[in-house]
Amino acid sequence: MAIPLPWWLTVAAALFAIGLYGVLSRRNAIGVLLGIELMLNAANINLVAFWRHITPQALTGQVFAIFVIGIAAAEAAAGLAIIISAYRRRRTVVVDELDTMRW
């Protein structure tokens, strides 16, 4: 029958950890963006899993997930735009080298 809730949560936690690792360790800004996407989707898995196992009669979990997907798309668009703009100016997308604001 259905896969029990802890399994979902384990997968989601693993995905989140992978995403976080990517965000913290990648030097390429696009990689950082990819990590963020992973973390958002980990959260989506949790939302859908909790909906399915705890409040199947209400649609809030699903609706919330759809919102997150939409916002993630927007975020990716904005993030990529910033990266392209930074690349045009600085000829690099390595986050360590974008240090204008540093003391």
Partner: peptide, 17 residues
């Protein structure tokens, strides 16, 4: 105090995490 402010976004995020 300024040594705490590295300017690397990933450092800050690490601190948050």
């Amino acid at each position: 105090l300024r040594y705490s402010e590295t300017g690397y976004v990933q450092n800050y995020l690490l601190v948050v995490a």
